[in-house]
Design a protein around this nucleic acid. Structure first.
Length: 425
DNA sequence: CCAGATGATTTAGG
DNA sequence: CCTAAATCATCTGG
């Protein structure tokens, strides 16, 4: 007798832990003579409950059937329904519609963007390529490197999909199982369809939280992969850098590519326009900061473009041989930035003055030539006097930006007529 | 490990 | 929006 409570709380979770009220009610029955008998009944019931798991299915079924056919059953059922309605409503009230999880959406978006959760077929390589392009692009020469990335990515994708499928399947199985169970039980206890729905949504929530973990770890894996394979090679490939540098040094007087020019460069380098912008932004600032450091580079590109643009007057004999770029002198003059030796190119530029369409070409060549000239020691001396070189736009207080008004500076040589020399592009 | 290089991002100004 | 400038985050070579 006094081991009943122990029984109640022990074993199999079949006990009445969930219904303390019931137990209480049973025990605080009216005292008196029949108390003993009542306890006996309760003991029997509990005993039955405790052994319920030991029963065979048939037995249980039979018992259930017996219960269903009990004459008092409908009445009892109604009472249960009534009680339930009261309690369930309060529960329902607390039940919130789950707002779409922002975190989950972010993960989903990312997986989609990475091509992990996208369409299975073809999505793989295409998405990988897209990701690659987005990640910094890269041109032709490293497609081999990307195959590795792609392989790993598709591996991740495969794992992700199988896991996801497994989860989904498990979820569905479990859901149908629970639903069947509930439906079955609804014959003996009141269960509204709403409740089933709620149960299902709870199950789904649980499973989706598991899915979220899966997505999260997949995202992490992809991120790691990316940083390993793509971001790691955030250096643009050599060719791209070359193209950009070429443009930069051949437009040194005004290294601000227009939108179209940016697009063109982006296309040529297979990078994005904003990457082109970034590159030029960085280049300008870094060039300006330490012009001396870039001399060698400048010479190289200047020489190259000058060589390419042969048709111009300045035979490349000197230009073609960058020689030792060690022109400390010119570097010095670059650095000094005193501001007054700028715009002097106008004399050269005079030719282009008449035709806007030629202007751009000429200007760029002037730029490159200026550098070649500044570099090739011999010239620099003679021409330095005539202030040919020095990055024209760069004055003491800074950038190319405020350069275009030569009148503001001491340029006694020319009239303001030929001003807009660097309105190339 | 460090310093330098380099692409990206942030901040502030126009 | 674009830019300059500062700064961050990584990668790289010594």
């Amino acid at each position: 007798m006094d081991d009943q409570p122990r029984l109640m709380h022990s074993s199999h979770g079949v006990g009445m832990a969930g219904h303390p009220g019931l137990a209480q009610h049973m025990q605080d029955g009216t005292g008196g003579a029949d108390d003993e008998g009542r306890k006996q009944d309760i003991g029997n019931i509990l005993q039955q409950i405790m052994t319920i798991t030991d029963q065979s299915l048939d037995e249980a079924q039979a018992r259930k059937h017996a219960l269903n056919c009990h004459r008092m059953k409908p009445a009892l059922f109604n009472v249960l329904c009534e009680i339930k309605e009261k309690t369930v409503l309060s529960i329902r009230g607390a039940q919130e519609e789950e707002p779409p999880d922002a975190q989950l959406m972010r993960l989903d978006n990312m997986l989609l963007a990475e091509g992990v959760s996208g369409p299975e077929k073809g999505g793989g390589s295409a998405a990988a390529a897209a990701a690659a392009a987005a990640a910094g692009g890269v041109g032709s020469d490293n497609s081999a490197e990307h195959s590795d990335y792609r392989a790993k990515l598709s591996q991740i994708r495969q794992i992700y999909h199988t896991e996801l499928e497994k989860y989904e399947q498990a979820c569905n199985e479990f859901t149908t199982h629970v639903m069947n169970l509930l439906r079955e039980q609804s014959r003996t206890r009141p269960i509204s369809p709403k409740e089933i729905e709620r149960m299902v949504s709870i199950i789904h929530r649980k499973f989706s939280s598991i899915q979220m973990q899966l997505k999260q770890s997949t995202c992490e894996a992809v991120m790691i992969l990316r940083s390993r394979f793509l971001d790691a090679r955030r250096n643009f490939n050599k060719q791209a850098t070359e193209i950009l540098n070429e443009y930069f040094y051949s437009h040194l007087s005004n290294p601000y590519p227009s939108e179209e020019a940016k697009e063109e460069l982006a296309k040529k380098c297979s990078i994005t326009v904003s990457q082109v912008s970034n590159w030029f932004g960085n280049k300008r600032i870094r060039y300006k900061k330490n012009i001396g450091k870039f001399q060698e580079e400048a010479n190289m590109y200047a020489a190259r473009t000058a060589a390419n643009a042969t048709s111009v007057s300045t035979h490349g004999s000197q230009a073609n041989s960058p020689s030792t770029p060690n022109s400390a002198g010119s570097a010095g003059s670059f650095n000094m930035n005193s501001g007054d030796l700028f715009m002097s190119v106008q004399s050269l530029n005079g030719d282009s003055y008449q035709g806007a369409q030629v202007g751009a070409n000429v200007q760029s060549q002037v730029d490159t030539l200026r550098h070649v000239i500044s570099q090739t020691g011999g010239y620099s001396e003679s021409l330095a006097a005539s202030q040919i070189y020095s990055p024209q736009g760069i004055n003491a207080n800074g950038g190319w930006q405020d350069a275009p008004t030569p009148s503001s500076v001491t340029s006694p040589t020319e009239g303001p007529g030929s001003v807009h020399s660097d309105t190339s592009n």
